[in-house]
Design a protein around this nucleic acid. Sequence first.
DNA 1: GCCGTTTTCGGCCCGACTGTTTTCAGTCG
Length: 575
Amino acid sequence: MDCNRIAGILNEMGTLLELGGENPFRCRAYHTAAQALEGLPRDLVSMIADDSLSATPGIGEAMYKKIVQLATTGRLGEYEELKRKTPPGLIALLRVPGLGPKKIKVLRDELGIRSLADVKAAGESGKIADLKGFGARTQTKILEGIAFVESMGERILLSSADRLVQPILAAVRTHPKVIRAEACGSLRRRAETCGDLDVLFSSDDPEAVMDAFVKLPDVATVLAKGPTRSSVRLIDGVQCDLRGVSDTEYPFALHYFTGSKQHNIAIRRRAIERGFSLNEYALSGPHGPVQCRDEAELFAKLGLAYIPPELREDHGEIEAAEAGTLPKLITRDDLTGTFHCHTDYSDGANTLAEMAAAAQARGLHYLGIADHSRSARYANGLDIGRVHEQWKAIDALNKKFGSSFHLFKGTECDILADGSLDYPDELLDGFDYVVASVHSHFHLSQEEMTARLVRAASNPRVTMLGHPTGRLLLAREGYAVDLSAVIDAAAQSGVMIEINANPHRLDLDANWARRARAKGVMIVINPDAHATDGLDDLDYGVAVARRAWLEANDVWNTIPSNQMAKRLAERRRVR
DNA sequence: GCCGTTTTCGGCCCGACTGTTTTCAGTCG
């Protein structure tokens, strides 16, 4: 069983224990251990083998045994026992705003509630308002919360969050009483999805800003409003929290509201260890508050190098910041070009020339064209004749570009059900590079899917694997596959793995990309663009790479453009 | 359940807001 699956089980156990009224610190230990597993820098098997797992913070003796048991047998008696005695419908209740473990326990003990439907019925008949500690207002809030849970998914894509927060941030920034403002939370950390939007500002008169905020046109409902903090539901259904502080407090609040929660807990613990106390307003030492102009100064006061928001997950960044070993994270400017783009030869919207012009306009020096292969009929995949046609067209354009720009001839070649490729070897040898991707037969068993991808990842004609899990964020799970085995195969044969920068995919994700790189796999950031503006998605791919701790050297398409043709040719020669 | 310059027990991040309460518990981030 892989570490993400085990993390899921530990998270579920923590939640089940909460519902059982267990000591909250014990519950948290499960969530902490799950978090530690998700952020493992290397693959679980090797970390068990060399005993580094037991030394991982957050994983103690008891948790270690549970993890090893799950990893080796896939089963855990305590987990099955917990699931057996908790009605499955109770977990959904935790998603209702205003309902936490304590209230759920009362509902369960007093009214015998076992599901969302039970709560709804009890609320509608007025039984909840009669319970001790509840009341009419609470009952209404719970019913509203249920309506919300039923009408909306919980999270939104990072790209949607970017779009929604922009007008709000602009309105806050232009308010005359606002000094500084920033979007915080998972959006600032560039997490792949966001649960809500967090906006922070500094001002001498925060209350005036709050008054204006709750009246913005995008606001549907005011959930809470105080002098320093307000929450609203936007018309789109997304929750947006606004917080105001003084400008002196701003750096502390910026750090605090950026999170993650686990990172903050670890930082506060560190502050206490060094004789300070840290909250969202100040860092206080034995001689009073310590002034900091920005986050960098705050980190410095705690003996740490500046930690970029993308790394703040308590996945080892604090230890690295102390030791001075934080990576010099890749930036968008490091990308010299990119691969895996589509044109109107297959299912893209734009021509070769238009895609090339768009790439140049975005400061790229080369672009790899990878239209679909012949089996991808739904996507107008190219038969062999049309591949040759496209090659001629690319040659003609390259002649025009001279040394100023270059189009590379690639293909996004389907990996067939048995792991073989969709074109004959002779044709594959004519491409500058080959992206190999799965687009069909998603429902193979894990063994079959793993064997299929391992075969592709071991094929010397494959340059890089495309979107290796096939997931679509918030829409479709990735197919069942043992990614560790695929990564091992890619490392063995020198095949690269793509970070697909399409905000619906972001596949590989940051945790797997980090582990793949640790195994020696070269990463490549590709937009999978189906139109010219799809090239802008590269920013999202860079965000994933940064969250994966990658430096420019870890990513193939940072190689200087004048060396790229040679480097691709070298790879083909070693077949 | 984890963890240790208060080290094998007794803590565990901390403040805002809400609603039900007369001083606080629960939830949330």
